[in-house]
Design a protein around this nucleic acid. Structure first.
Lengths: 258, 258
DNA sequence: CGGGTCGTTGACTCTCATCAACCCTCGTGG
DNA sequence: CCACGAGGGTTGATGAGAGTCAACGACCCG
């Protein structure tokens, strides 16, 4: 299989390079980072809240989320990551973890020791800048989530989440057609949007009857992208989108969402 | 006045150095950064949404917030900053601004050209790490805010905001006694917590009658820190708190909140 | 003295939470 | 092959928390 012949960290390097200029030497340094593959099943923890974990997690396949729980047991999902993303970048520079990382789907991830990554960042300023830049994009997404749960209706929040997940998959070159993987249960959608399962259910039904989306198991079709975007007040600029697949595909990427 | 004899950027350097190891040379490089002082009145913009701004903003005195507005005009405050904080660090590494920076109070700030700051970061890996680390702390705070608006009641949200503002002032060494500056109007508190002015008003009253806080104009006294913390489910670890004033004060800092 | 900003209050509405079932599908084991 | 249980989705009834609208009061400043 061609995927196996590629270096493990190639997708990560491609993603970083899409946003940041990296010299050949810097790319190689990243590809040469030591790492260890791990597999997780849905629901399994990669990092627990408060745990000290001395590795960065680079996702190869699947989806994970980052979440936190109140003392009374209410859960909030703070962000989600998909293939190629660096999940736990913050742990490199701060030692105490204030949230948990959990698999949403079956997941394969590479764990890079902090020391190795930090050494690479110290040796190559281009790498340091690239990692910093990823952190800033993460930040931008987190802020949009504040906005989402703070000032939008249930319908808008859910529509917005769907837009984000679809567009991020498309940008990362992870989906072929107009069908997107929706890796979350309705309960998890509620945890991400600050709503209850019941209300998520009714709202998703409303989006379906409005012919905006169509769902089949974990797969979702966006029937009316412009309509969904309009409902959600979705503006993609906060994702600071850059086509990752451009370096991979011979032909220009066929984007469906715009 | 002794404040004027200090280099303009000294508070920023002290704040960075509290969390990150910085050599003497690196500190000096930061202090030597070119900058330009600006003053703003409450409500004035420092950066507008979508504007390209080629300077980082380092706050000297006063409070600012970072905010965003829906197409229908609903505002959400995404984070607030106080004296010594670097406000617009993200703009160094990403060119398009997705939110506005506005003064909450009278503000004095120093603007550092991106180029100069980036050059310092490239030349000194310690500076690059320190800036990255600040971005990560920012990120951690943003995630706590998602949690706050997503999963807490009005009373908890507001109590949590009060805890954060008080503790951040105390950590930065900005307040002398048990009285804290509360730089936001009730409308702005609503914008930060995803609530309406009216509801904020009633909730603040409830906190007052519960003898948790006391307010007088822009000044707030926390009467029962443990009680307020408990109400808010406030855990300070997300701020990654480090005493800034320790390097400044001869005697150990007198912390009131813990 | 007027005008603006900010805080306060009351009455009413509506979104969303809560509680409690029930259904369907799928994987597992007897 | 069927029984069983678990997870996820669906439904209905009810209620609470927060929004909306509208007005008024307190205070500051020119």
């Amino acid at each position: 299989m061609s995927a196996d012949s590629l270096p493990i960290l190639a997708p990560m390097v491609r993603k970083l390079a899409a946003r940041s200029p990296l010299g050949a030497e810097e790319r190689q340094a990243l590809l040469d980072l030591p790492c260890q593959l791990v597999n997780r099943k849905p629901g399994a923890y990669l990092v627990r809240e408060g745990e000290r974990f001395h590795h960065c997690i680079v996702l190869r396949t699947g989806f994970v989320h980052l979440g936190k729980t109140t003392s009374t047991g209410r859960r909030q999902i703070l962000s989600i990551y998909l293939g190629g993303d660096i999940v736990d970048l913050q742990s490199c520079v701060l030692d105490n973890t204030t949230y948990a990382v959990q698999a949403l789907t079956n997941v394969q991830a590479a764990c890079i020791p902090h020391g190795a990554l930090m050494a690479a960042a110290q040796a190559h300023s281009g790498i340091a800048m690239a990692l910093w830049r990823e952190t800033v994009v993460d930040n931008s997404i987190a802020r949009e989530w504040i906005f989402n749960v703070g000032r939008r209706t249930a319908r808008q929040r859910i529509a917005h989440l769907f837009c984000e997940i679809a567009l991020r998959q498309e940008i990362a070159g992870l989906c072929a057609g107009p069908v997107y993987e929706m890796p979350m249960t309705q309960e998890q959608i509620g945890d991400a949007t600050g709503l209850t399962t019941v209300h998520v259910n009714r709202t998703v039904q409303a989006l379906r009857t409005a012919s905006l989306i169509q769902t089949a198991g974990r797969w979702m079709t966006i029937l009316d992208w412009q309509g969904l975007k309009a409902e959600a007040d979705f503006r993609s600029d906060y994702l600071h989108p850059v086509e990752v697949s451009a370096t991979k595909r011979a032909s220009p990427a066929k984007r469906i969402l715009a």
